[in-house]
Amino acid sequence: MITVTVNGKRQRLDGVGTVAEYVGTLPVNRRHVAVARNGEVVPRERWAETAVEDGDVLEVVRMVGGGSTPSP
């Protein structure tokens, strides 16, 4: 069991050793999020080898398309 901060909130994680494993626990498609560990975005191909450790600060960045928001 480790404690990490995800998007500003503390969370306990069980059985999660890497970024890839952590993303696997999320209800999102891995192609549609970016993940930063301790302030740096981790490239997708390194998710499997990047460890998540006790005390890490993670940021899960979702894709957001909005901007000019045309009228309905």
């Binding site: 498609n29 192609r31 975005v41 997708r44 894709m63 909005g66 009228s71 309905p72």
Partner: peptide, 16 residues
């Protein structure tokens, strides 16, 4: 580099 592919239409809602 951040988001290599778009989500399928409808998955990510827009502001409307």
């Amino acid at each position: 580099c951040l988001f290599p592919s778009p989500p399928p239409p409808g998955l990510v809602p827009n502001c409307a």
